[in-house]
């Protein structure tokens, strides 16, 4: 696949139209429509905040804890939505794959772009909440898009890799559901990392090598409070602290390689 062909006019048109359709269909037939893109994470936030913030008293040591929690949940929802849609994209669009010839990656990218749009809307809400909560605007906010991009690359890599396997073995969808559950508790999203440190410093360090944890902590650090514990500050060894980046690179390269290799046969196997 040559670079000029990847983004030629026909492919761009197709990508834009499929994304538009996906976004429109997502909230088709619901009374509140697009508002659900906002309401879902806000409601999840409300539940988690009452349970963990108020009842269990998590995060008493973290300034702006509600916003801190919301930022984590927003990025986590983005990751789950992105990978779920991406992995299933080939199966959902099987009809197209069987009947026209086009680069298959378009289907995966268009499915994940809907999640990107939802996330951007939610991120605006996070910023509004942050300002209401008294967080001072800072230049470090400009670093947030970099972290978002990093998470998107990871999500795309997973979608390509698992999506390609899912064409033949639909078990992947169920396996990924379980993985998502495990990953949610493996990342410091609802609980503050300081809680882990009190019982084991090593465990906290291991948790921070998870790319999802690294991204979420970076976003919290740059957007909300510099009291956030990040991978970069907490781990000293340069080689060890670059593990999250290496994981993302390996998954993306492997995903793209495997997807390209298998995509020739999607039309017969789907």
């Amino acid at each position: 696949m040559k670079i000029p062909r990847v983004l030629n006019k026909k492919n761009r048109v197709l990508l834009a139209e499929l994304t538009r359709t996906d976004f429109k269909l997502r909230y088709q037939g619901s009374v509140l429509g697009y508002l659900w893109a906002l309401l879902r994470p806000l409601m999840m936030f409300a539940i988690l905040y009452v349970v963990f913030g108020q009842l269990l008293r998590f995060g008493a040591d973290i300034p702006h804890y509600p916003v801190y929690l919301l930022a984590g949940i927003t990025m986590w929802s983005f990751f789950t939505e992105c990978t779920n849609q991406g992995i299933q994209a080939m199966v959902v669009r099987g009809d197209l794959i069987r009947k026209i010839s086009f680069p298959k990656y378009i289907v995966v990218v268009s499915a994940t772009l809907t999640a990107v749009i939802n996330m951007l809307i939610n991120l605006i809400v996070v910023v509004i909440f942050a300002l209401l909560n008294g967080v001072e605007p800072s230049w470090s906010w400009l670093l947030v898009p970099l972290s978002v991009l990093e998470l998107y690359v990871l999500s795309l890599g997973i979608s390509f890799l698992l999506g390609a396997i899912n064409v033949k073995y639909r078990d992947i969808t169920s396996i990924w559901d379980v993985c998502i559950q495990a990953l949610f508790y493996a990342a410091p999203i609802i609980y503050p990392l300081s809680m882990v440190i009190t019982s084991s410093v090593l465990a906290a360090k291991v948790l921070l090598l998870n790319p999802i944890a690294q991204v979420i902590q970076d976003i919290r650090y740059n957007l909300i409070t510099t009291q956030t514990i990040t991978t970069w500050d907490f781990i000293d060894n340069f080689w060890i602290k670059s593990i999250p980046i290496v994981i993302i690179l390996i998954i993306s390269v492997l995903g793209i390689y495997y997807f390209r290799k298998k995509s020739k046969f999607f039309a017969e196997e789907i």
Partner: peptide
């Protein structure tokens, strides 16, 4: 191979025209 590839029953006729057109390569 088939007419109306990508036609979606939940979309309007207008939306389907643009979607189907995109599949044929029309902006």
């Amino acid at each position: 191979i088939e007419l109306g590839v990508g036609f979606n029953p939940e979309l309007t006729g207008r939306e389907n025209v643009y979607l189907n057109g995109a599949l044929l390569g029309f902006s």
